[in-house]
Simulated scan of single mutants.
Amino acid sequence: MPSGGGSRLRSAWFDGYVDRIVQRDARDVRRVVDPRRLATVLKLLASNQSGEVVRAKLARDADIPDTTMTAYLDLVETLYLVETIPPLANSLRTRQAGKAKAVVADSASAMHLAGVTSGCATDLVTGGELLGPLLEGLVVSELGKQRTWSETGFSLFHYRETSGIEVDVIIELDDDRVIGVEVKASQTYRPEHFRGLQRLSERLGDRFAGGVVLGTADHGVQFGANLVGLPIASLWEL
C-alpha cells in the first residue's frame, strides 16, 4: 500500500461514520435536525475536548441560535457521542466556578473530528498540548464504561475554584466519599500535579477517600497517605 494509504482509509471510514450519524441516526431521534450544524457542533466539541462548554460561544461558532443549541447538545448526548461532566457542587458550592465539561466519548473519533492526523504524531508522542485533553477524554470515557458494570455505584464530576485550582475528574461514590483524579501528559510525577488533589482533600475532610494522578509513566509513586501517581493503563489493568 502506498505511504499514507492507511491514514486515508481511516479518514474515509470516520467520515462515513460521522456522516451516517448526522444524516440518518440523528433523525431517528429528532426529526428536525440540520446535519451540517450537528457535524459542526461535534467538531467544535472535539476541538475543545475535555473543555468547559460555553453555550453562547459554541452557538456563535456553530452559527446556531442560542435557543437551539441546548437541543443539539442534548442530541449528541442521546446518541452517546458526547458525555458531559458537571461541576461538583453540594457543600463546595460557595467557592466553585465553572460549567460542565464535554468529552467526545470515542477517542479516535475525537481525534478525527478535531483534525488530529498523522502529521500531529510528534506532538502527541512528546506530550504536546494536544495530548492532555485527549488523555483526559480517554480517562472519562473509560470511567463511564466502568460505571455500567461496577459493583460500586459512582457519579462523575469535575472541580474548579475561582482561584484556578482544579481537579480534572471527581468520582463521587454512592456513600458520598470522593476520589479525585488528575490526568497529566507527563512521564514524571511532580508536586504541582497533586496541588488540586491536596486542596480537595482539605475542603472535603473525611469525604476525601483518596486522589490519583494518572500519567504516561510506566511506574507509580506514593505521594502521601492518600495520594498516588499511577500509569493511565492502571485504569483497566488493575
Rank of each mutant, 00 (worst) to 15 (best):
S3W: 12
G5M: 10
R8C: 04
R8P: 00
R8K: 14
R10V: 15
A12Y: 05
W13C: 08
F14M: 11
D15L: 12
Y17T: 01
D19I: 13
D19H: 14
I21A: 00
R24H: 07
D25M: 11
R27H: 02
V29F: 13
V29R: 01
R31Q: 08
D34N: 09
P35D: 10
L42E: 05
L44D: 01
G51R: 00
E52C: 09
V53D: 02
V53C: 02
R55V: 14
D63I: 02
P65D: 09
T70Y: 14
A71I: 15
Y72Q: 00
L75G: 03
T78I: 05
L81A: 11
T84R: 09
I85W: 10
P87M: 03
A89E: 13
T94H: 12
T94Y: 09
A97H: 12
A97N: 05
G98E: 05
D106Y: 08
D106F: 06
S107T: 13
S107Q: 12
S107I: 06
S107K: 02
A108W: 03
M111G: 09
A114R: 05
G115N: 05
G119E: 11
G119H: 14
A121D: 04
T122Q: 10
D123I: 07
D123V: 11
P133A: 00
P133Y: 04
G137C: 13
L138R: 03
V140C: 09
L143A: 02
K145I: 05
K145W: 07
R147N: 02
T148N: 15
W149A: 05
T152N: 12
T152E: 04
G153T: 11
G153A: 12
F154P: 11
F157H: 15
H158G: 01
R160Q: 14
R160C: 15
E161G: 08
T162A: 14
S163Y: 04
G164P: 01
G164R: 02
I165F: 05
V167E: 01
V167H: 07
D168C: 03
I170W: 03
I171K: 15
I171Y: 13
G180V: 07
E182A: 09
V183D: 13
K184D: 14
S186L: 11
S186N: 14
T188A: 14
Y189T: 01
H193L: 09
F194V: 03
L200Q: 01
G205N: 03
R207G: 03
R207A: 07
F208G: 03
G210T: 03
G211H: 01
G215L: 11
D218G: 09
V228C: 07
L230F: 06
W236M: 11
E237R: 14
